[in-house]
């Protein structure tokens, strides 16, 4: 496979993990998050710092990075227990700006220069090929899908959906909003951390701008355009929003304009996403 295609597919894979992980927070538990890139960043930066500054081996560093991202995710999920939907949307935007600001300003995190020389995975002392990396990426995508599926069909999923529909009714029915909101933040951010490790390791170099607020918007757009709460939807959304611009290369200059228009039209005509209730794709699947 050519380098271009491999890189593109790895990017799609990483974004699929991101959109599925955000889907657990937004689509399952109903907590608006416009700061998912921050969790991604925390995963990537943890991995970069652990490997380059402390020379911790790849697998151990990956493990600790996920632990760190999960803990930070639970911590940053705490506002969701206190504030209402709209406040949460703005709070998560704030989290994104603050996290990006911290990585951008402190020398410990490389400052504006970012962190380079992040290790690529090796096998028997040799770096693995890009195609092997691609394979590993999609194994992890599969793992993310399995986790999403298990969550969705388990009672934890049902409890989350109940909280999403009516938090107070769930509370008096014995379902703790605290536990299940934080659970969704924990799992969602753990998976975002995983995506961060993949990204940092594949790129070899990260800087705070890679995780800016528009990236969070894009991830949320993938979830919403595909269909929040479904599993196929966010996967489709990631493929669509990463691959579509590639097809639009000839009219490169209009890309972002069309992206904006697409978001508006989707929300007006397909508010539940392509795979959501009354979505075009879902209706076609049901018919056939």
């Amino acid at each position: 496979m050519g380098d271009y295609l491999t890189t593109l597919l790895i990017t799609v894979g990483i974004y699929t993990i991101l959109s599925l992980s955000l889907n657990i927070i937004v689509g399952y538990a109903g907590q608006i998050s416009l700061g998912h890139a921050a969790f991604w960043a925390i995963g990537a930066y943890s991995f970069a710092v652990l490997t380059t500054k402390y020379s911790i081996p790849f697998v151990e560093a990956a493990f600790f990075s996920i632990v760190i991202t999960t803990l930070v995710g639970i911590f940053l999920g705490l506002p969701s227990l206190r504030v209402s939907e709209d406040f949460l949307a703005i709070t998560t935007i704030g989290i994104n700006f603050i996290v990006q600001g911290i990585f951008n300003s402190f020398d410990y995190f490389g400052g504006a220069m970012g962190i380079g020389n992040i290790p690529f995975p090796t096998m028997h002392g040799d770096m693995i090929s890009n195609n092997t990396f691609l394979f590993i990426t999609y194994l992890l995508v599969a793992l993310t899908i399995i986790i999403s599926y298990i969550f969705k069909v388990s009672w934890a999923g049902l409890a989350s959906f109940a909280i999403k529909d009516d938090e107070l009714a769930a509370d008096v029915s014995g379902i703790s909003p605290v536990i299940f909101k934080l659970l969704s933040f924990a799992i969602g951010s753990a998976l975002a951390g995983l995506a961060g490790i993949l990204y940092a390791s594949f790129m070899g170099f990260i800087s705070a701008n890679d995780f800016s607020f528009p990236v969070s918007v894009a991830i949320l757009a993938m979830v919403m355009v595909g269909g929040e709460g479904t599993i196929l939807g966010p996967i489709f959304g990631a493929f669509l929003l990463i691959l579509l611009p590639e097809f639009f290369r000839p009219i490169h200059s209009y890309r972002m304009f069309l992206y904006g228009i697409l978001l508006v039209l989707m929300m007006i005509y397909q508010p539940n996403g392509f795979f959501g209730k009354k979505g075009i794709v879902w209706s076609m699947i049901k018919k056939s």
Partner: peptide
Amino acid sequence: RPFAHLSVEENVLAAYGIRFYY
């Protein structure tokens, strides 16, 4: 205040589940 987007059965299962899956 039903769980609006869940089925009748799921509404009850959600509450029923606290006995086993808390």
